[in-house]
Design a protein around this nucleic acid. Sequence first.
DNA 1: CGCTAAGCGAGACGGTACGTCAGGTCTTTTG
DNA 2: CAAAAGACCTGACGTACCGTCTCGCTTAGCG
Lengths: 235, 235, 235, 235
Amino acid sequence: MSPPSPEREAQHPAADSGGAPPAASPKIAAHRATAHREPRGRGRRPAAEVREDILDAAAVLLFREGMAGFTIERVAAEAGASKTTIYKWWPSKGALAADGYFHATEAELEFPDTGDIRADLRSQLRSFVHLITATAAGRLIAELIGHAQTDPDLAAALQTRYAGPRLRLAVDALNLARERGQLHPDINPESIVDQLWGACYHRLLVTGLPITEGFADNLLANVLHGIQDQPRNDV
Amino acid sequence: MSPPSPEREAQHPAADSGGAPPAASPKIAAHRATAHREPRGRGRRPAAEVREDILDAAAVLLFREGMAGFTIERVAAEAGASKTTIYKWWPSKGALAADGYFHATEAELEFPDTGDIRADLRSQLRSFVHLITATAAGRLIAELIGHAQTDPDLAAALQTRYAGPRLRLAVDALNLARERGQLHPDINPESIVDQLWGACYHRLLVTGLPITEGFADNLLANVLHGIQDQPRNDV
Amino acid sequence: MSPPSPEREAQHPAADSGGAPPAASPKIAAHRATAHREPRGRGRRPAAEVREDILDAAAVLLFREGMAGFTIERVAAEAGASKTTIYKWWPSKGALAADGYFHATEAELEFPDTGDIRADLRSQLRSFVHLITATAAGRLIAELIGHAQTDPDLAAALQTRYAGPRLRLAVDALNLARERGQLHPDINPESIVDQLWGACYHRLLVTGLPITEGFADNLLANVLHGIQDQPRNDV
Amino acid sequence: MSPPSPEREAQHPAADSGGAPPAASPKIAAHRATAHREPRGRGRRPAAEVREDILDAAAVLLFREGMAGFTIERVAAEAGASKTTIYKWWPSKGALAADGYFHATEAELEFPDTGDIRADLRSQLRSFVHLITATAAGRLIAELIGHAQTDPDLAAALQTRYAGPRLRLAVDALNLARERGQLHPDINPESIVDQLWGACYHRLLVTGLPITEGFADNLLANVLHGIQDQPRNDV
DNA sequence: CGCTAAGCGAGACGGTACGTCAGGTCTTTTG
DNA sequence: CAAAAGACCTGACGTACCGTCTCGCTTAGCG
């Protein structure tokens, strides 16, 4: 699930190390700075405008305090919206959190195919490692996935809008490589994604072991060449 | 993280299919049947007895309703204990849930070494797949891990008492196999655990894709022989 | 205040017993049966038609659920009108309720003067007792008066369209009787109305004691002859 | 119903005119001034103390804003209590308002029997007139009775603790007078109360006509001597 | 063996958030 | 272009749990 990282920060490995932190969406700050608090009576406001305010506030709150402290009540207060309106559009706190996250990050997914599947996987995996270790998104994604275990709405949103698309990109890349003869014809691409990105999530969510670029390289080596003691080509 | 499954039911692959469902701790039902509801005044009761009642009630509630609906208030009510007592011993709802879970399952961990690392991994992995797909423990573990993302107490408990021990067993087995020359000397055992059990958790927690024995075998094949298109020995 | 009862069903005492139940306005049911629910876009509709629908809906709702459950929102929904329209014509929920009540009951007030003030008062008073004890109007009037204590619009409407006219009729009758020499020349007619109808309201609104025809007769006897121990003519 | 006035202000007619306004319970202000706001953690507080705070706050709010603006939420806020606590003890807003009113006024009822029923009734009635016209209690009682029309809890409280006791006192006095031969043996004391105090309530709640001492005297004269044109003793 | 104090059960307390409902006010859309 | 439609914010509702704390008791443990 979710190979190509959200936020997108670096395509070629070299640029990875100095990647700028994605920050909780600069556009949010800008928007709120200009269009903030001009009390305008109690009547109707354009739906789109309200929706924007709510999502902005949700994102800000989410990045500021995480899922703990993320409350429909507080989102409403900070958005200058009413709870009623929020409940009209989002079925649960989780659904709102998901929308808020996506609204703030709006990752343009890419999984460039250079022809060298090993290099491409390495690049994507390292980007992902950077995202979940060096930016606020890491803890946030963990908390969203955590909450999704008891919030079906959030689970659905994450699978549809987050995990699904990223999985698809990686699977496509793997299939292409297989067709080029770079990978064994019997492979199951989804499983490989599970063994690369899933291994990272395992450390993020369960064991808490450190997630480094070396770790990512190691995962890749294992799955490419196997771990049995036999002649390898390279690493 | 957690290779040998809790509950442990079958060591050799053949026995897996007919494994008895682990059931939510028969000892609980027995205990509660006998020692249920004889109102006994408000004075002091032996700490051990009270503690037992609380853990039993926690486990029952946990298996009956999952983490949603698992409330300190309700545990107290069903245990005939007071909230004060619970707060005296457990720092958070998550800590209590973890203790309740372990109290009910009390897995005796084993990772038998037959000398054939491939068969041993296969057996252990299949047992784990069975646990998280065919028993109530699957959803429950997912919910516990989910809550652990925002509850440090629960996270600590899970890592210390659940993930840690299971990871250690598997790592030990892998190290043994390496020393026997069955695995490449450069391998990192923890990474391999991430790529086998972690891949299953990925599907359980994130993508929701099906987790089957075939999937487990596939994971194992990938990591043993690699996925690059080159001559393999066997599968 | 309100001597001559709304709905009015029987003028001469004898007919009282067999009075038909006033029913919550048959004309309403008829109207709603025909003009029900043909969604017709959002544009303009003849004001009169909309107004009629609203009043009908208000009356139906009022008689069905009382002032609790009587809501501008629900009236709008059941009338197929919008809240805007209602707020344009009625200043408050109470004003609408009052209008709805009068729309449904449309009492033709009468206080026939037979020349015998004692018989006339007795007849009117008994009719009023019947109205507030044997029909739905009793509870409703109580609730309207109740709400009027905190809703100036409703209070004004009730005094202008309900209490005022009825008070006037009774006062006129009493003045006529005084001019005929049947009553003491120093009397204050308004006070007498307070002591006859007001006494009934006291039981309806405050003490909850039973309101019977015997009670009405007793009120009349007291006020006609006094309660001091002295020779009376008759009762 | 409720002949002897709450707050009790004057027994003999002469003192009536200069009666001091009963003020919204001086003891409240005193209490709140001294024992206000020493934050003491979140745990339990003596029930009696909390109850006192709540009733004080309720009374203050009630006298300050009337039933409109009287909200459980605001009482809780001003009392420094929690809504939960209030809902634990009072079934509805009306019940709390009633308790708050009685807590603040704590009228010591008296209906002194001088042997002259006419003088006693006159005194009591004038006191009542003063109460409902010259003090804040008038509007408040009206609003409480108003709300009682749709709040059974409030209705019960008013009848039990307000209307009932006052009715009883007056009825007893009337019965005594009857036994002394001052009143006709056939009278129904409850009806007479309805015709004296009830007539005042009628003006207060329904017609809005002015309630003066002259009006009270007139009510008394009517009911004592009757209104038919016949020789009277005096007025 | 009797007294004391440790410590549990009970449950009320101040809070926070929930999800709902109605009141009024305003913009948009339609006839 | 006027009026109906309907979405908006506000504020209160009544409920559920949280974590804290007071109280009444019982029983264990000390004298």
